[in-house]
Structures are given as structure tokens and as C-alpha cells.
Design a protein around this nucleic acid. Sequence first.
DNA 1: ACGGCTGAGTTTATCGATAAACATCGGCGG
DNA 2: CCGCCGATGTTTATCGATAAACTCAGCCGT
Lengths: 358, 358
Amino acid sequence: MARAKRATLKSIASDLGVTHTSVSNAYNNPAKVSKALRDRIIAHARAVNYEGPNPAARSLRTGRCGAIGVLFNDQLSYAFTDPHDIAFLRGISSVCEDEGANIVLIPLQNKRPEQRDQLAAIVDGFILNAPYRSHPTIRQALARGLPTVVVDFDAPELSSVLTNDRAAMQAVVAHLLALGHRHFAIVTFPREEGTGDIRSLEDDFSDESYVVHERMEGCRDAVDAAGVPRSAVLVCETTNCEDGGQRAAAWLLRCRPELTALVCFSDRLAYGALAGAATLGRQVPATLSVTGFDGIDPPGSMSPGLRLTTVRQNACEKGRRAAEILLRPDKEGTTSIAIEAEFVIGDTTATAPDTGKK
Amino acid sequence: MARAKRATLKSIASDLGVTHTSVSNAYNNPAKVSKALRDRIIAHARAVNYEGPNPAARSLRTGRCGAIGVLFNDQLSYAFTDPHDIAFLRGISSVCEDEGANIVLIPLQNKRPEQRDQLAAIVDGFILNAPYRSHPTIRQALARGLPTVVVDFDAPELSSVLTNDRAAMQAVVAHLLALGHRHFAIVTFPREEGTGDIRSLEDDFSDESYVVHERMEGCRDAVDAAGVPRSAVLVCETTNCEDGGQRAAAWLLRCRPELTALVCFSDRLAYGALAGAATLGRQVPATLSVTGFDGIDPPGSMSPGLRLTTVRQNACEKGRRAAEILLRPDKEGTTSIAIEAEFVIGDTTATAPDTGKK
DNA sequence: ACGGCTGAGTTTATCGATAAACATCGGCGG
DNA sequence: CCGCCGATGTTTATCGATAAACTCAGCCGT
């Protein structure tokens, strides 16, 4: 089918013997055109299958396009497996619906450096979810100089929505310490590709994502306060999904049977860790305590009554607030919002068993 | 912060005493510019924080923008609660990642008619998920005349990805009939706002979505073949979520205790129906059979071992194929793909109890 | 009778890029 | 020595709209 040349403001104007400005006004400025002319124009436009001004041209001229860009730190196809990210998107979309704004999901460029594209997104602003400043796509987004909200990232010059990860994590670890746990490991997710090394809380995590860094600091706050040496707390990195948690838990518990608790940096990891512990015959919470982070529903494969000890955060609310800052600015300048995460004690933590050591 | 005027091709060109075309070529046509000049240009661009040509302008000129629009039949914020829709998006995003394409999520306009906006999305094509042709946003999208793929919708002039809903549903109902069920109800989701009436298979469903219509036809195929009168099969409409399924089931079973099976048009409805049945003390599958459609994981609140009798369809694959048709066209013209849904017998259907009637 | 105002359109400039046609120049084959 | 070619830039037209400034009646009050 040979695609017919589409109608434009100009073609409609010349069809009708008026100027293209009048046609434009018929759509955008009805007050500036007599009702009679406007009706003629709209009727003719329908007849030639013209459904309004070309958005790209309009956007070029006006500098606005009615869409916001959303960038995730991870692959987009990963985000659609993660209940946290999905809830975050749900929050964003609820605001966009009300405002009639489109959402542009922008995959990160993961090509080889030499063939990197430019960031093609046509948007009025960005929401950056836990971004890395150094990533080329993020850099390009920031360079646009558009209104931008960062989520779970500290950027003084930008608007932000932040969660109190550090304090929440401190509460988790303090809880475990109070239960007598002295041998535990942290299961975290990697910055990009994980190295797989086992580290300890002594190591430097300033290169990690803001979220990971803050949570590590929270852990340190707790162990420091309790006088536990940082070097005693293992840190193990794995991909942020149930499988990753399961593998990490199985491996850790095999290498270090003396561990009595696993502190997971996400619920997905924690649910995986529960499965991994089960394969080694460890009883949760009797012989192993497990904690998570996020407060999502357990996956379908877990028993339903199970309540994970975790930090509940409202990802939907994060998305909503971020979108609101962007789409309903109440004032000039940047806005920062803190969202409280809540430590909840579930059924997966208990008094440390006596390991006979130390 | 007074937003500084941003650099453009032209400003960079005049800074450097070259023409703007050369700057454009430096980005898009390196072969047409000497390496020395190109390096000068890129270096200067970096210095003035220029991250490449303005996408809106480029898009206007070239007619391409590197994004595809995705439209759901439901509210966007609903889509982010539905495992089927999420999987569908995951499929789309996996292709877009590879192709470096952005995804524009377009909320439906649900405003009052007088204040309807134009469809502002700047895209190279559309994926329409189970669309209604009559919806204004869909109409505008189709009027653009861009490459378009419809999913779960029959449109001979467009590319499409279709599932064999009818045959699959026929298998479900035939299965129930073979188990001896003669009193059962269909629980479906509404076109937009449900009317809430109880109908029967005799009624006309041609106004419903393509998906609902096809599934109804499948049901009819089965009951007709078995000689069961269509009027004996109730049809109840409710919102497509667990709560809706629960309410509908509770209500149906209270009004019509003789029912021995509920045929739900989605797994979400079915899982809700299981909960609703439980509140009335009905045992599944002993005294009530329940079937679903989709093949998603049970929600966290259900017992994990539970295997629903359902039709498994691969929503992720649907998204992937749709995106592939759009982004990797292998030929001119339209393409249609059929995706097989698979009827799977689980633990929620069994021989009909003798109800003592008929 | 006259200046000002309002409504309805028109003219012109511009948004920021890409594309096609054209200019310039040094080298090179015949 | 001529003419052609490739490499490198430049000129000009154009994508499809919006915005601002302008024209021109007709009307109103004084």
C-alpha cells in the first residue's frame, strides 16, 4: 500500500483558501477564529483524515511535548520482573493518567562504546531511578538540562525522592544483633555486572549505587554501635532475583556453616535465600534468620502465610511523588521529598541458636 | 537558576566558524567531514555541554524518532497490576532494548468529551493491546497511518498477534462438560465500566472486546456441541482483579447454590473466585470447580502448591513478537502471527458432585 | 467626524535539525 | 596540459507547526 501523503496544516489551509495560522488556531486557539471558519476547518480536516497537528513539529516549536522520560538503573526487561520497579511505574502512571502525559521508557545503552547512540527521547523532563551519573545514557539525560527528579539518589542540585534506607537498615541489623546474632552475611545486588567476590563490611562501597551505599552505612551504624568488628560481617554480591538469592544463600551456608543470619538487600533476594536455606536443611527462623528489604508480596512459589522480616517501602508512592514533582511543580527550583520506610518484624528472624563458637 | 540558552548546531557552527551542516555531519555522517574538523567540533560540543542534535528537530526532519507507542485497553495504572500486561510489556521491552528503541506508554484519554486532547505521542509506530476501535485515543492512533500491530484483535488491514482464545476456551468448557458439570457460570471482565447484570450465553457479546467475544464463542462451541442450552450458562461481569473475582463468586454462589463450576476469563478472577468460594465453605475441587485463563503465578496470598486449571498463554512472547514485527520488519505489508495458548488441567477441576437436581 | 478598540485573519519569523545540490581544490591519468 | 574525480565544505530548501506583529473592517462614545 503506497502510503498517501498526509495532510498538514498547510494543505488544509490551501484546500480551504485560508492561511495555515487559522487552521492552527482552530485547534489550539479557538477564540481567535470565528465559529463558522473553525467548523469548516474541523470538518474538512476530518474528511482528509487529519487528526491534529504533527506532534514532532509542535514540540519543536513549543519546546514541550507532553511526555516524561523514565530511566532505570537496570535493564528495562529486568524492571518488568521486579515488583518494586513495577509498583514504582504504577505510581508514575497514575499521575500521568491524570495529567494526560505520556511515559517514555528509555532503555540504557549497553552497546559497545564506539557505537553509542544519542539519547533520542523527546521528553519534557526525566525521572531517574537510582541512577549512576557515569552511565552514558544518564549523562546525556542530565546534559539536556530538563527538569529532572532523581529517586534514591543524592543530587543536591536536582529534585529528589529519597527513602531513609540507612536508618531502616540500621534497624534491621540492630534487631539481629539484639537477637544475639554475631555471624551473619549481607547479600547485596551488584552495581552492574557483579564481581562475585566475598567482601566484608570493612570494604569500600562508595562505588556502589546510592541505595547500596546507604544500606551498607546503616549496617555499619548498627555493628559499630554494638562493638562488632566490621570485618566479621561478610558481604556477598549476586543478581537481584530469587535465583540469585538462592544461589548466594546456598553457597554462603555451605562455605560458612557458622552463619546464623542473612541480611538481604531486597525481598527477592530474601525469598530466594529462604529457598536456598531449605535445600541445605536449615530451618528458618530456628537455625537461620533471614531479612529482606522492600515489603513486596512473596512470589507464588512461597507459602502464603509467611511474613518476612523486612523494611517496607512504598514504591508506588515514590513513583507518584516523583511524577508529581515533575508534572505539578508547585514552585520554582528543586523539591526534595523523604519517604519513610518502615521496619517490620516478621516470622523469619529469631534468637540466634548457640553455634558453640566464640 | 536561570536556564541558560542551550547550544544548537548553529551556535556551535558559528563558534567554530564552520557551517551547521558540517556540525550535523560530524554527528551523523562522519565520512563527510575530515577527522580534524570532526574532532574540533566534538570537543567544542562537549565544552558547551552539547549532547547531540535536538531529537524533536531531528524527528521532524527525518520523520523517525526511535520510539514505539504502546496503548492498553485499560488504564495504565491497571496494567501495572496485571501480571499478563506486565509480561506483555516485558516482551516488548526486551526487543526495544536490543534495537535501542524507546517505549512510549500512552494513557487512554478518559476526560469528558469536550476537553479531549490530541494524541501527543511522537512515535514511529504503535502496538495496540486489545484495542477498541471506537475509543478516541485508538482512533487518533490509527489515523496517524503509522505502522501498527494489534494484539488480540482482529483487523485484517493491520499486522497482528493473535491467540487462539476460542479454541482454548472451547477446550476448557468441554473439559467441564466431560466432568459432568451442567450448572456453571462464566465470570468475565467488562468492556469499560461493567453493567453488573447477570446474562447468559444466549446474549449478544459482539460489543465486548475481541478477547471476550472470542472466548464466549469458544464456550458456545462447547455447550452447543454437548447439547446444553446456552440459556443455562450464566454470564457475570466484574472488574478484572482478585477482588472482583471474589465478589462475583460469592454473589453467584449465594444466588445460585446449584452452580458446580465457575469459568473465569482470567486467572486473577479465578484466584479471587477461589477465595470467594472458600468464604462460603465450598471445597475446590470437591464441590466446586474453577478455571482461569492466562497461566500466571498465583498471588502471594494463595497456597503455593495450587495448580489452577487454566489456559496458559505466553504474554511475554506476544509482546516480543509484536515489537519484532514493528522494529524488524522482514518484508513490506502486514504480518500476522498466531500464538498457541495451551489448556492445562490443574487441581481446581473435578467430577461434578451430584447436585440432586435435573 | 475622529480616535480607539475589538474581532477575525494574514504575514512573517522561527524552532533545530537533515538532505540535496553545488563549489572548491589538489591529484592524477592520458 | 586538460579534464575528471574524490574529499571536504557550503548553500539553500524543507520538515510542520506556533508566535508575534500587523492589517483591516466595523462599531462605539463623544
